[in-house]
Amino acid sequence: MSNISDIIEQYLKEILKTNQNNEIEIKRSEIADRFQCVPSQINYVINTRFTVEKGYIIESKRGGGGYIRIIRVRNKDKAKLIDEIIAMINPEVSQQAALDILERMFEEDFITKREARIMMNAINRNTLSFQLPLRDEIRARIMTAMLVALKYD
């Protein structure tokens, strides 16, 4: 059974899929009314499920005529996407941000499910049993090495 955050996320992603510009504008209060939840629930979904690492840009305007704009960034050039990710993750990357990046790469068919699983296991905090911030630095180095290997594949 899905929780309300999952349902809201799926709803917003479905709207994005139908929009040819890969961009939607929503009113937080309208979405909250639709799902009978508090507006802060919408903020939570947007802040955790529509991140830069997952390939989204969020713009917002507060006030009576305010909106939240969700833009899906698609990069068809594999090498360029990998360069952008490498720049984003260095000098360190958290486990969640790294997982979000791998999810994005899988969704955009840049890596297979098997490659994603291998990479996830290699960068997992249980595999990298070091103290922070060293763990995040090593994770970034490992991810960078794997991404460079993918780039020239």
Rank of each mutant, 00 (worst) to 15 (best):
E92S: 15
A98R: 04
Y44Q: 13
M88R: 15
S29D: 15
I42P: 01
R117Q: 13
M119V: 05
M88E: 09
D83A: 11
M88Q: 14
Y56H: 04
M119T: 08
E59V: 04
K76T: 08
M105W: 06
E53I: 06
R117G: 01
A97D: 13
F130Q: 06
I101Q: 03
E108V: 02
E30C: 10
G55Y: 03
S60H: 11
R62H: 14
I123Y: 00
R28H: 10
E103A: 12
G66E: 06
R72C: 02
G66T: 07
I101P: 00
I70E: 01
M105V: 08
R104M: 12
I89M: 03
S29R: 15
F110R: 07
I123E: 02
L81D: 05
I86S: 03
A87H: 09
N75D: 06
S60V: 04
R125H: 11
N43K: 13
I70V: 10
T127W: 07
D109K: 14
I26Q: 09
G63F: 05
A97V: 10
T127L: 04
L132R: 15
M119P: 00
I82T: 01
I42V: 12
F130R: 06
N47M: 09
R104G: 03
P91R: 09
S129M: 03
F110N: 11
I101E: 02
N47L: 09
I101K: 04
P91I: 08
I86H: 02
A87V: 06
Y44I: 10
N121Y: 09
A122W: 04
I85Y: 01
L99P: 00
A79G: 05
K78T: 12
A97M: 07
I57V: 13
A32W: 05
E108N: 06
I68M: 02
I111M: 08
P91S: 07
I123M: 05
K54G: 03
I26T: 04
Q95P: 00
L128S: 03
N75C: 08
I86D: 02
V73F: 05
I86Y: 04
N90F: 08
A32Q: 10
T127D: 00
V52T: 09
L132K: 15
I123K: 01
G66S: 05
D109A: 11
I123G: 01
D100N: 15
G64H: 13
Q96C: 07
G66C: 09
E92Y: 14
I31H: 03
E30G: 09
G65C: 12
L81S: 07
D33E: 15
I68E: 00
V45C: 07
E107P: 01
S94E: 12
E84G: 06
F50V: 00
A122H: 07
E30Y: 15
L102M: 10
I42T: 00
G66A: 08
M88P: 00
L99D: 11
I57M: 12
M105R: 02
A97C: 09
S94N: 11
E103Q: 14
R49D: 01
M119A: 12
R69N: 06
K78F: 08
R74Q: 09
R114I: 15
L128G: 01
Q95N: 14
L128K: 05
L99K: 14
K54W: 03
R49P: 00
G55T: 06
R62V: 10
E107W: 12
A98L: 05
Y56K: 03
I42D: 02
K61F: 07
K54V: 01
R117W: 09
D100M: 10
Y67N: 01
R34V: 07
I68N: 01
R62G: 13
